[in-house]
Write a protein that binds this DNA or RNA. Structure first.
Lengths: 263, 263
DNA sequence: CGTTCAGTTGACCATGATCAAGAGTGGTGG
DNA sequence: CCACCACTCTTGATCATGGTCAACTGAACG
């Protein structure tokens, strides 16, 4: 089974066997484990290497002096955290582990080597970087213009699709290891209001959340509410997602047995 | 007098005479003029070249089907609009002219040539790209966590400092060719509320806005309200900005004669 | 079992939205 | 030169989305 990074990058270009081998080596870099809720790196720190998420969820966040915190993106398996972090002197934001996290630490040389020897991968990495920027823009739109119900619906749509891209969904279900507090920090709402809003989505029979797992009961309805359109994710091959994303059927498959899908 | 791009990039690295010559050639690429309020390129369009803003203000925005619009960044002289736009198939957002705009259209070859022949410039361009992403993150924080007064104060601080970087301020004044509607779209507020909030900032004697020009009367106070810290802009040389940014004095210089500063 | 943390619910409040009308301001053409 | 038009700014009145405070439930874990 291909790993998450491979699946992710092959959204952007065709990878040769040679490319695949190089990517496999990347994931085999020294790994680091970080416990849930701990910071991987903190605003102001001097970055040493680039992180590749192998297992678990992380989040990028920025906070204000008085404690207000904004999650600006989530990081899931296959995501590279700030590709070019080695150009910067200081981190301008923090990265935390949402769940227990396994990351590969890729040093500058390994990445440069990759860039010089595989133009395909370089292109794919650029695409990933651009797609990430596009996600940032969508989040500004989300928080700036959408209202509570739309915001949360949008977040669910986005994360489901991103997880699907790396093979971490089954049917209409995926892991969602976020507390309502996390969702609040990501959407600019309060935990209390997130709670009420999710309740609404539940009562509208759009989603079901149980033991840290999200099941989308009505994909078309959820996307509709969110005014979600997957273009901004730049998944060139999203034809592959047609069944789930077209949302033609509102019938969810029976709750899967919850088997964790290996990265 | 150095042009805006040069000033901008020399924030990030030291440029040799050779670099400067190359950059001068960039600005001499075929230019295009776009009238105020017109779109430069629209979401869904196939990008042809990269735009370098020579004169005027632009904005990047995304909108929803029902007309809600979110400005996700402003573009001022010296800004390159989506450096790597040529990798993408379709624009995921639109770029519009806020004022009459003069842009250089840089084609792929010219940029590649630059990248291969001047490592300094390449590094600087990367830094610009990263700084832009950092600005995106800050905007998510701004819209997600700050309240109206803080948001607008933050926007003023940011734009003033960005303009200062490219030499487009005089004393504590700078052009601010935005309508209150634009500010509303950038901050996720309504025009009416923007109006009331600016009135507050005026009554607090923090800023003065007259005929599309912003004067910051109390830099320290404004930054304080906004919880603004310039780190996220990644201006390595912001020692240079010490006088304006430290905000030691609350006395603004007399309103300058409003001479437009050439790019 | 008790402790802790996430989720849930209620009551009340405030920030900012909405609706509406009027005041400046600048540009254009008669 | 003035009249008109369009656009932006301004202000008031009212409303609603979402915030705040607080208490309680339920599950997980030692």
């Amino acid at each position: 089974m291909p790993n998450a990074l491979t699946r992710r990058l092959s959204e952007y270009t065709d990878l040769t066997d040679d490319d695949l081998a190089r990517l496999a080596m990347l994931s085999a870099q020294p790994t680091r484990k970080v416990g849930a809720r701990r910071d991987l790196i903190r605003q102001g720190d001097r970055p040493r290497s680039i992180y590749l998420i192998l297992e678990g969820w992380g989040c990028h966040y920025r906070s204000l002096a008085d404690g207000r915190r904004q999650i600006v993106d989530f990081a899931i398996p296959g995501d590279l955290c700030d590709l070019n972090v080695y150009i910067l002197d200081r981190m301008d934001h923090s990265i935390a582990a949402v769940t227990d996290l396994k990351v590969a630490e890729i040093d500058r040389e390994a990445l440069l080597d990759l860039a010089t020897n595989s133009p395909n991968i370089t292109t794919a990495l650029w695409c990933q970087e651009l797609a990430c920027k596009s996600i940032n823009r969508e989040w500004i739109l989300n928080v700036g213009q959408r209202r509570a119900r739309e915001r949360i619906a949008h977040l669910f749509c986005e994360m489901f699709l991103r997880l699907e891209t790396v093979g971490l969904t089954s049917g209409y279900s995926c892991d969602l290891p976020l507390t309502q507090n996390d969702i609040a920090d990501a959407t600019g709402l309060t935990p209390v209001h997130v709670n009420r809003t999710i309740k609404e989505l539940r009562e509208m029979e759009l989603v079901m959340i149980r033991s840290r797992r999200l099941t989308i009961l009505d994909m078309a309805g959820l996307q509709d509410i969110a005014q979600f359109s997957p273009d901004y994710l730049h998944l060139k091959r999203n034809a592959r997602h047609s069944d789930a994303m077209r949302g033609g059927s509102t019938i969810a498959p029976p709750d899967d047995p919850g088997v964790a899908i290996a990265v």
